[in-house]
Amino acid sequence: MTTEAPLLPRVAEGDSSAVAKCLDRYKNLVWSLVRRNCTDFQTAEDAVQDIFLKIWKNAGRFDAEIASETTFVAMIARRSLIDMSRKRSHTALGATELDQVSNPDMGVANRAELNDEAAKASAMLADFPSEQRDAIRMSVFEGLSHASIADAMKLPLGTVKTYIRRGMIELRNALFTKEEAFDPQMVKGEVQ
């Protein structure tokens, strides 16, 4: 993924061949995210259409200097799913039940094709204590609330919050050392 030229600038210009390639490139990333967070097929189908519509509409905001295209797409997908979840039930992002929380021995991705942001995140996770890594995974990947994570890990709530907070801030600072950010138009409220 990292070596491929970005497609979103061409999508923003209305290049239909880039639109199809964009779908081919990111369909499984988006689908995997959606399936992890939507329990039924119909909701998943609606979600994936909504996400791609937003990707195409926001294509002009992508800037390769700020983040990789994959991370930008994943961000839009996550933001949409979180907003959908909030609208549906004001509950956590993930549909995962506590008894389905992933294997505690689970490691972190070590794929050669990880983009820069994901590679930094992967390296950082590998350096974190296992408890902190698990807390971040349950929060970011499983979408569990802090209280649910504390229950599952049998840790004080404050410890869980601190693990997640420190991890998020550390990676945020590693990724954005300069005053880098996309145009914030889609942040306020919900992704448009």
């Binding site: 961000m75 992967s122 998020m168």
Partner: peptide, 11 residues
């Protein structure tokens, strides 16, 4: 949001 997306991919 980008930070969370990066962790998501790493996991």
């Amino acid at each position: 949001d980008l930070t969370a997306a990066a962790f998501e991919q790493a996991l």
